[in-house]
Each structure stands twice: as C-alpha cells, then as structure tokens.
Amino acid sequence: MTDLGTVYAIWLRELKHSLRDTGQLTGAFLRPILWVMIFGIGLTPYFRGGFTEATFVVPFTYAQFIFPAVAVLNVMYASVQSGVSMIWDREFGFFREILASPAPRPAVFAGKLLGGATVATLQGSLILILAPAADVPLSWHQTLAALGLLAVVALAFTSLAMAIASRMVSFQGFGVFANALILPAYFLASSIFPLDPSLSVEQQILVFPPWMVFAVRVNPVTYLIDALRMVSIRYTQFDPRLDLAVAGILPAVLMLVAYREFNRR
C-alpha cells in the first residue's frame, strides 16, 4: 500500500504540474489545428488530384491520412516534456529528497513514468475533438481503441524521454538530443507521406531514395502510426500483425531501458 501511495502521489504531482502549465496546453491545442486544419485541408487537392498514384493507393483526403500521425506527434511532444520535468526535479533537489525518503525507487520511477504517460495521452487525445473537421467518423469502439494505442505510444516515448534525461545534465543538452532523435523518427515514419503498399520494396526504391524506404521500414514509429490509422480510418500500409507486435514490444523494451538508466542515478 505504501508503494501504491508513492506511485499515486508522484503521478498526481506530474498531472497537476502539467495542467497548470498553460504553455503546454496551448501548444497541445494549436499543434493539431495547424496540422489538420491548415496543412491537412490545404494540401488535400494536391494529395488526391495531383498524384494519380496516391489517389489509387490512398483513397483518403490528406487531412484524413495525417490525422492519426498528428495525434502521435502530440503524444511525442508531451512525452519529451516529461524528460524536461525529470531534469528540473533533479536540478532543484526534488529527486534528492524523494530518493532519500523511505519511498522505494521502483515506485518513484513508476509514478514518474505513469504521470508523464497520462499527460501525453491526454494531450494526444485532444486531436480526437477535430475528427469531425477532418472527416474522420469515429465510433465509440474506435475512440477507445485509439486512446489505448495513444497510451501505448505515450508509455514508449515517456520511457525514452526518461532514459535520455537520466543521461543529461542540462535542459539545453536534453532538448537538442531529444529533437535530434524524435523529429527524424516522426518524419521518417510515413507520417506525412505514404509508401505504396501495393509495390514491392524494390519498386518503392524506384519512387523514393533507397535510404528513405529503409529508414521508414525499420522505424518502429512507422508501425505505431500505421496501427492508429488501422483503428481510425481503416487503412494500413503494413501487416497489422506487425503493427500490433511493435506496439506490444516497443514500450516494454523502452521501459526496461528507462528503469535501468533511472537506477544509475
């Protein structure tokens, strides 16, 4: 019960701290509006009318296609903030106090992880409000499945952010390293452009540079976004079984890495 109390207290602290940060909340609202309402709707004519191959392979508007990817982007940004929060707590002595207390280290880690993942999931779910504007009809079952996948993404990237933050000693170093890792992972995840699933890898290389096709296919974020597309717009570019396998394995691996790095402190 003491362990659960520690987890709950730290989880609640993370949640309250994030809800009081108006900058985070403003960004979480404005980012989806920028992508879905401006880029999504504005580029739809070129996505469907300008490229006949895309029209055949991806029978959706651009807003519909990027809708799941923008939800993942919101989660990724919020997850990075959990790493910043961790460095802040270490810099100003909160961790020294909490780790010097009888609170078990695993409970402290779990509270921090679950708090950051909860905030990231909530911010990612804000885009679901824009589903009617993007012409993405979501049933209750689809909404719940989407929230479950967003929680998986949040656990994975909050773990990654905590692992990076455990190695960093400054906010500036963390920001540079996190952006250098997370932004390429997002943009090379078929988030804003489709790979034709009807083509073989050899044929895709004729359309895209070989390094790009390779990067998209080995990038685990590709399969997380593809799983969310499967749930929200009933479209996948890859084997759904592979999507679900990555969604199950990636968070577990990153949580183990994060816990190991957390224990080094």
Rank of each mutant, 00 (worst) to 15 (best):
10 I>K: 00
171 F>C: 13
61 T>H: 05
193 F>I: 14
212 M>F: 12
99 L>K: 09
124 G>W: 00
206 L>C: 11
216 V>E: 03
122 L>G: 12
197 P>V: 08
54 A>V: 13
25 L>G: 00
255 M>V: 15
153 V>D: 00
107 A>W: 10
53 E>K: 08
60 F>H: 11
151 A>S: 10
260 R>T: 14
63 A>K: 07
202 E>R: 09
33 I>V: 15
91 E>A: 15
83 G>A: 07
262 F>D: 04
137 P>N: 10
133 A>E: 09
205 I>T: 03
243 D>F: 02
26 T>S: 09
105 R>F: 06
62 Y>W: 04
109 F>W: 03
24 Q>L: 14
61 T>N: 08
76 M>V: 06
66 I>R: 01
134 A>L: 02
140 W>Y: 13
227 A>H: 05
189 A>E: 01
196 D>T: 09
116 G>E: 00
143 T>I: 11
116 G>D: 00
134 A>G: 03
229 R>I: 10
250 L>V: 14
45 P>E: 07
30 L>C: 07
54 A>E: 12
129 I>Q: 03
227 A>L: 07
193 F>S: 06
50 G>E: 06
207 V>P: 02
171 F>D: 10
199 L>D: 03
42 G>V: 11
95 F>K: 15
48 R>D: 12
172 Q>L: 15
215 A>Y: 02
225 I>V: 10
42 G>C: 14
178 A>P: 06
171 F>V: 15
25 L>N: 01
38 I>S: 04
181 L>M: 12
115 G>A: 08
239 D>Q: 12
7 V>R: 05
47 F>H: 08
182 I>W: 01
6 T>I: 11
246 V>W: 01
230 M>D: 14
121 T>A: 13
82 S>D: 05
